[in-house]
Amino acid sequence: MAIDRATVLKIARLARIEVRPEECDHLAKEISGILAWVEQLGEVDTRNVEPMTSVVAMELPRRADEVTDGNIRDAILANAPEVEGGFFVVPKVVE
């Protein structure tokens, strides 16, 4: 399926990646090309085929619901671009 400029802008917004208007045509062409190639999957009969959701057949392991880590605030903040008073800083969200 060929996708158009409007679709590129829509998925770019969903993905929170700014796309410049002059890039849209090129991206639409590239993504359409890849999707067209992917569409050959339609040839495969997948009636009554379960989707593969687990690579190795195993029970999902469980552990006790208890705190195993913590008190490492400074380590967590160490790589942040902007920090103040032990918090991550972001632009104002609520007026």
Partner: peptide
């Protein structure tokens, strides 16, 4: 997302910070 680690580009609001950083 430009908040917790790595690159951060300035944005007028949070959504713009995300999309400019990721671009």
């Amino acid at each position: 997302d430009g908040v917790r680690y790595g690159l951060r580009e300035k944005g007028a609001d949070l959504a713009e910070l995300y999309s400019k950083t990721r671009a």
